[in-house]
Amino acid sequence: MNWAIWAERLRVPICAALLLGAWQLVYALGVVPEKYFPSIPTIATAFWAMLNDGTVLSAWAVTFGRATVGLIGAALLGVALAIISDLSPVLSRGIRYISDVLQPIPPAAFVPMAVFMLGLGTKLYAFVIILVTIWPPYLNGVAALAGVGSVQLNTGRMFGLTNWQLLWQVKLPAALPEIFTGIRYAATISLIAVIVAEMLAGRDGIGFMIFKKAFALRTPEVFGLMFLVGLNGVLLNGLVNLLRQGLTGWHIKMMERPE
């Protein structure tokens, strides 16, 4: 059974080796034409060349910046909507109607209609990202605020907290861990929305770059950029996790403590 433990400990290198090995095997067997399936070294060289001429880094900065700023805006707005919903059942129902209708619409669908009104700049991206990213923090926020235990609430009331203090000092901190689950999900959506919007708007960013390279049949570059997109997800998730640990460290500690 010893090897199983070792396999588990070394799983990241094993996965990497498996992936790279399978890739090179497909390449070596020549099942797929090389034009569409370049070898790992070719991809690495192409990626390195793009890194060196600076185009990738500036495109990446644009894309990642948009996704991050959009996520922050959407998270704050989502929590604000959740708080409003917590205060008034009528407004809560009203916002729920809107979220039910808007949620099934893909981010891509908004782009062509919004381009004429908002141009190709910041406004377009802010609109598209917020419109699709706001819902997970909002929905989790509503559920979490409604689910705060009555013991906690009554304790707060016993200390003579006003409704406003109760919201800020008891309900919101208690709801924060669940809100962060929503924000983590929103981070993924925000990245997708940015990439899609860039593909459709066709001016700058990683999304546009992938499409341009694909149409030019520069397959090694396309694979390299896709790797970068995956890395973006890991990076943004890491940022959200850092923030979560900073804000809800008490909760994480509590969950880890053996009962």
């Binding site: 498996l18 997708i192 990439i195 999304g207 997800g233 890991v234």
Partner: peptide, 21 residues
Amino acid sequence: KVLEPLMDMLATLPPPAIIPL
């Protein structure tokens, strides 16, 4: 257990990114 990181990696690659590919 061994393949878990591979699944996590796939989860970070958004579907629209594979469209050009």
